[in-house]
């Protein structure tokens, strides 16, 4: 009796340790990171909008001249008041001579109101925070890319690491995704539409997250469903390759997909 209990305790301990170390998966970290990526995007967009709105009181013309969020935020953050917007200085953050000239001219003739130092400080602090969030996001993307290539090299190479991680997050676990039929992978992320289809006979969705894939974007609109289907079936093969060996052998699959994409374009 005592012996049996000893054995049981020992095996429970051992299994606990193993699910923690040997097996517990890198995948949980990847899934967390993929979910947080979407959050960071959203937060960044909000703060960026807010910064533009606020800084626009002082220099409304810049809104139409600078469309890249990071450049806009850097200009606000580094140059501050309109009067500092000389072509020279602008060029440090926006490497486009023509645009820099335009911005300088608009700054001189702006219809915006003057603002006080304390207002500017607040706007700049907001811009700084948004840039930090962008930085955090970019480094998280790098992390996801690295980890995905380690865990699912073939899959990531076909799918793109970030999109792949989002699919993984939808699926919940690598093992689950490996066992999924391609038709399920095709509509991962379109659960709402799928549910509507099952419940009320609405049209079934043709794709979920795979809509974001460059190949699906590239082909003629009417062919997107077909492209998503081919893509899903190759992804499903790549997942199995990864599950069983992780050796890189996605080249052939990728070639086939490229061919399919150009047929459908």
């Amino acid at each position: 009796m005592a012996k049996k209990d000893d054995l049981r305790r020992k095996l429970i301990q051992k299994a606990r340790k193993e699910v923690k170390t040997k097996y517990v998966g890198r995948e949980s970290h990847i899934i967390r990171a993929a979910d947080i990526l979407s959050d960071l995007d959203e937060i960044f967009n909000l703060l960026y909008e807010d910064s533009r709105e606020w800084y626009g009181i002082h220099f409304p013309e810049m809104d139409r001249l600078v469309k890249t969020p990071e450049i806009y935020l850097n200009l606000v953050n580094e140059l501050g008041l309109r009067k500092n917007f000389s072509e020279q200085k602008i060029l440090k953050y926006y490497k486009n001579k023509e645009k820099a000239k335009q911005i300088e001219t608009k700054a001189k003739n702006s219809v915006g109101s003057e603002i006080e130092e304390k207002d500017l400080k607040k706007i700049q602090s907001l811009a700084k925070q948004s840039l930090l969030i962008k930085k955090e996001k970019n480094s998280l993307v790098e992390y996801v890319e690295k980890e995905m290539k380690k865990e699912l090299p073939n899959f990531s190479n076909l799918c793109g690491a970030v999109l792949g991680a989002k699919l993984l997050s939808e699926a919940g676990a690598i093992e689950k995704m490996v066992k999924m039929p391609a038709s399920t992978i095709q509509v991962l992320g379109a659960e709402k539409a799928l549910f509507r289809h099952l419940k009320s006979g609405a049209k079934p969705p043709k794709y979920g997250l795979l809509f974001q894939h460059p190949f699906v974007q590239q082909v003629k609109t009417v062919n997107r469903g077909k492209m998503a289907r081919s893509l899903a079936s190759k992804l499903s093969i790549a997942l199995k390759q990864d599950f069983f060996s992780k050796k890189e052998k996605y080249e052939k699959l990728l070639k086939e997909l490229e061919k399919r994409a150009s047929e459908l374009s």
Binding site: L11, I12, K14, A15, Y23, E175
Partner: peptide, 29 residues
């Protein structure tokens, strides 16, 4: 006594909790 063998870490986590509750179950990953 039941020796429960499985190679899936995900399901094994749940099974370990069951083993804690039931003195005739043992996990084998």
């Amino acid at each position: 006594l039941i020796f429960g063998v499985d190679l899936s870490q995900r399901t094994m986590k749940k099974f370990i909790e069951l083993c804690e509750d039931r003195e005739n179950l043992v996990p084998v990953l």
